[in-house]
């Protein structure tokens, strides 16, 4: 085949992909993807678990979900976080007797006080680790509330959405302690999360696309 044709086709594909990405980001940031078009009776969910306060907050948020509808549930958390694991197991045991959940462990994307340069490398590594998690579970929904570890998972699921493989809804809830400023995770997920909730009206004013639906905690 002629080299220039190959080049042209590659160029076209890149252009199409770029259009798709921009189209999706436009749809997300303008709030057109807030509600799902299709009706369903069940959905599988990845729940991103952070550390300490984030974990408690997340479990508080999802405590009233109907687990018959939201199943199975995959809790993704850092390997080193024994404390969060205990909290999740205790929470599930109290909530239901069915074992329709599983815990998936990932390496931490960024240790506290890690330098900027090495954190770029570890972030790349954790994106690579997230690919099999998303592909294996193929969830309908991802819920996250702040920990940086959820970003790679959201990026992978966004790529799947771009390639028409699976439409995974990303729901982000900014942490309760954010009253006037957004977290770094929040700033990144502005472009990726279909639903972007904040917990204070004071913070809602700062970003047009965010939603405040009332006191959550």
């Amino acid at each position: 085949m002629d080299a220039s044709i190959v080049l042209e086709i590659t160029f076209m594909i890149i252009l199409l992909l770029l259009t798709r990405v921009l189209y999706l980001i436009h749809k997300i940031t303008t709030g057109y993807s807030r509600k799902s078009g299709e009706k369903r009776s069940k959905c599988s969910a990845i729940i991103c678990i952070g550390s300490g306060g984030h974990t408690t907050e997340m479990l508080q948020l999802i405590r009233n979900l109907d687990f018959d509808k939201y199943n199975p549930r995959y809790y993704v958390m850092a390997k080193t976080d024994k404390c969060s694991r205990d909290k999740v197991e205790k929470f599930e045991q109290l909530r239901n007797k069915q074992q329709d959940y599983s815990i998936i462990e990932v390496p931490r994307s960024r240790e506290v006080q890690q330098s900027y340069f090495t954190s770029v490398i570890t972030t790349m590594y954790s994106i690579l680790c997230s690919i099999p998690i998303v592909l294996k579970t193929m969830p309908d929904l991802i819920i996250c509330n702040g920990p940086g570890s959820c970003v790679p998972i959201c990026i992978v699921s966004f790529i799947l959405k771009c390639m028409f493989i699976k439409d995974i809804r990303i729901v982000f809830v900014e942490s309760y302690c954010r009253v006037h400023t957004f977290s770094l995770t929040g700033k990144i997920l502005t472009y990726l999360a279909d639903n972007f909730l904040v917990q204070w009206p004071e913070l809602k004013i700062k970003m047009k696309r965010s939603e405040y639906i009332g006191q959550l905690l």
Binding site: R34, K35, E38, K39, L65, L141, N195
Partner: peptide
């Protein structure tokens, strides 16, 4: 401190998911 309605988030999510 006002007591929160624990169902707000669950109802919101149900709607978003098309339940």
């Amino acid at each position: 401190y006002p007591v929160s309605d624990g169902n707000i988030f669950a109802d919101y999510l149900d709607q978003c998911m098309g339940f």
